[in-house]
Amino acid sequence: MKAVTVKTLKIELNERSHHELVELCLRLSKFKKENKELLTYLLLEAQNEAGFIESVKEEITDQFSEINTKTFYFIKKSVRKILRMVKKYIRYSKNKETEVELLLFFCEQLSEFSPSIKRNNTLLNLYRRELASIEKKIQALHEDLQYDYKQELDELTNF
């Protein structure tokens, strides 16, 4: 079966009743964990973006505390996993401020991580790549926010 375009889906969804839409959403949520997470965000957390950001920050902190620090191999795998999780939550939000704030927090946690990421080129490159991407994303924000986030970014850059 080939998937149809978003436009076709939109037309079909507009023709359905409220009850049918609810059933479709519930059925969709049963297939993939990400679908359920996205519905949870849209229905319960989208109205409170600050609360959402705080919960994601707590999850990032927890994930960093659980990293196996025996070898850099395990550290790299875990850091990449955390970054994938952060980017997934950013996709749910689609808010540029949330994106910058979560990525800054991720980089802050990474810079404070022990053993230091300075001892591993792969982690250091990942860190620098994220800082460069944050810098580009800051350019799209309002001037006042740009100033605040730029200061945080400068602190992380001087790490």
Rank of each mutant, 00 (worst) to 15 (best):
Met1Lys: 10
Lys2Ser: 10
Lys2Arg: 10
Ala3Tyr: 05
Lys7Glu: 14
Lys7Gln: 12
Thr8Ala: 15
Lys10Met: 13
Lys10Ser: 15
Ile11Gln: 14
Leu13Asn: 14
Asn14Thr: 07
Glu15Tyr: 04
Arg16Glu: 08
His18Asp: 12
His19Glu: 15
His19Ser: 14
His19Trp: 05
Glu20Phe: 01
Leu21Thr: 06
Leu21Glu: 08
Val22Trp: 04
Glu23Lys: 00
Leu24Arg: 04
Cys25Ser: 12
Leu28Gly: 11
Ser29Lys: 01
Ser29His: 03
Lys30His: 09
Phe31Thr: 12
Lys32Tyr: 04
Lys32Glu: 12
Lys33Ile: 07
Glu34Thr: 09
Lys36Trp: 02
Lys36Ala: 08
Glu37Gly: 03
Glu37Phe: 02
Glu37Met: 11
Leu38Arg: 09
Leu38Glu: 05
Leu39Thr: 06
Leu39Gly: 02
Thr40Ala: 10
Thr40Ile: 07
Thr40Met: 06
Leu42His: 03
Glu45Asn: 06
Ala46Phe: 04
Gln47Cys: 10
Gln47Glu: 15
Asn48Met: 06
Asn48His: 09
Asn48Glu: 08
Phe52Leu: 10
Phe52His: 12
Ile53Glu: 11
Ile53Trp: 01
Ile53Val: 15
Glu54Asp: 15
Ser55Cys: 10
Val56His: 02
Val56Met: 01
Lys57Trp: 02
Lys57Leu: 04
Glu58Pro: 02
Glu59Lys: 06
Glu59Asn: 10
Glu59Gln: 09
Ile60Phe: 00
Thr61Val: 13
Asp62His: 09
Gln63Val: 00
Gln63Thr: 10
Phe64Arg: 10
Ser65Gly: 01
Glu66Tyr: 02
Ile67Ser: 04
Ile67Arg: 03
Asn68His: 04
Thr69Met: 09
Lys70Phe: 08
Thr71Glu: 13
Thr71Gln: 11
Phe72Lys: 12
Tyr73His: 12
Tyr73Ala: 12
Phe74Arg: 15
Phe74Cys: 15
Ile75Lys: 03
Ile75Ala: 04
Ile75Thr: 06
Lys76Met: 00
Lys77Met: 07
Ser78His: 04
Arg80Phe: 03
Lys81His: 01
Lys81Ser: 06
Ile82Cys: 00
Leu83Met: 03
Met85Glu: 09
Val86Leu: 02
Val86Cys: 00
Lys87Asp: 14
Tyr89Lys: 08
Tyr89Gly: 02
Ile90Met: 01
Ile90Ser: 00
Arg91Thr: 12
Ser93Tyr: 01
Ser93Phe: 00
Asn95Leu: 05
Lys96Val: 02
Glu99Lys: 07
Glu99Ala: 03
Glu99Phe: 02
Glu101His: 09
Leu103Pro: 01
Cys107Ala: 11
Gln109Ala: 13
Ser111Cys: 05
Ser111Arg: 02
Ser111Asn: 05
Glu112Met: 12
Pro115Lys: 07
Ser116Tyr: 05
Ile117Ala: 01
Lys118Glu: 15
Arg119Val: 07
Thr122His: 08
Leu123Asp: 05
Leu123Ser: 02
Leu124Phe: 07
Tyr127Pro: 09
Glu130Gln: 11
Glu130Cys: 10
Leu131Ile: 05
Leu131Gly: 09
Ala132Glu: 14
Ala132Cys: 10
Ile134Thr: 08
Glu135Phe: 00
Lys136Ala: 14
Ile138Trp: 01
Gln139Gly: 15
Glu143Asn: 13
Asp144Ser: 14
Gln146Leu: 06
Gln146His: 10
Asp148Tyr: 05
Asp148Arg: 13
Tyr149Gly: 07
Lys150Met: 03
Glu152Asp: 14
Leu153Arg: 04
Leu153Trp: 01
Asp154Trp: 03
Asn158Asp: 06
Phe159Pro: 12
